[in-house]
């Protein structure tokens, strides 16, 4: 059995940051990089399936599209127990959109022919929630999105999954492998990777590929191929808010005034 887990190294913003001069993004000086939170849950789900499966020869492969910054996230996945890692990068992928990334992932995942592909529901920085589903489309795999419960029967190659619907209803689905699932946070408790394990993970196989290695053309997946971010800006401050300053007594007095104004008006 083989499970592929696509992950993403995401940027986290400090409360104070500056935009690039051309307004196309955040100044990288202010970004902290970390593994996407959703992906820690999909990783854990994959590891648990492998650990619960009978026999040997099961494999968890973690894959990402990203520059060297993304290797830290891969190492933490390897430290937790992934068997090997694959990082795909090409300068032309800078600023690539969801579909382009999914297309690249598809090329890589196809070569692995896994039983399961477990993605996170979304990434915390881009918040499209589309990569996993698009990947299923390119791979022509059945998929279930926003999975809150997962039970994989390796002998039957069947996953029984649960999704949460409106009103707290739980939808139970059965899907035959190979399949792609996007995993929701809270489905499990992701394990901790010690620093020692992360250091030791450097001994595990981590392959770096570019587009040519995957037989892809630059213009088919690069920035040119899809949508791209043109500007990033802070929201305009809204109107109508009045900041109350001063001593608690003064603030309270002002609140009474406002309430009285509104009620009489």
């Amino acid at each position: 059995m083989k499970i592929v887990v696509p992950v993403k190294q995401v940027a986290a913003l400090d409360e104070e940051f500056e935009l690039l001069d051309d307004g196309s993004g955040v100044d990288p000086d202010f970004l902290e990089w970390d593994l996407n939170e959703w992906d820690t849950f999909s990783m854990e789900a994959a590891l648990q399936i492998r650990e619960n499966a009978d026999g040997d020869g099961h494999e968890v492969v973690v894959v990402t599209v990203g520059d060297e910054e993304a290797e830290e996230g891969l190492l933490s996945c390897l430290a937790k127990g992934a068997d090997r890692a694959l990082r795909i990068w090409d300068e032309s992928l800078q600023g690539a959109d969801v579909l382009a990334v999914a297309k690249v992932l598809a090329a890589a995942v196809e070569r692995e022919s896994p039983d399961l592909v477990l993605c996170g529901v979304q990434s915390s920085d881009a918040v499209y929630g589309a990569t996993g589903v698009a990947l299923a489309g390119y791979l022509d795999l059945p998929h279930v999105a926003v999975v809150k419960g997962l039970d994989y029967d390796a002998a039957q190659a069947t996953a029984t999954v649960e999704r949460e619907l409106e009103g707290g209803l739980v939808e139970v689905l059965r899907v035959e492998a190979p399949a792609l699932l996007t995993i929701q946070t809270g489905i499990n408790e992701p394990r901790y990777a010690t620093l020692r394990a992360i250091k030791q993970a450097r001994e595990k196989p981590l392959q770096v590929s570019d587009l040519a290695d995957l037989g892809l053309e630059e213009d088919a997946v690069g920035q040119a191929a899809g949508s791209r971010a043109v500007a990033l800006k802070p929201p305009e401050p809204g109107e109508g808010a009045e900041m109350l300053n001063g001593s608690p007594a003064a603030v309270a007095a002002r609140i009474v005034e406002i309430v009285q104004e509104r009620m009489s008006g």
Binding site: T194, L195, R196, A197, I198, K199
Partner: peptide, 8 residues
């Protein structure tokens, strides 16, 4: 007990 992180 996180010896690796301590070392780092």
């Amino acid at each position: 007990g996180e010896e690796g992180l301590f070392e780092s």
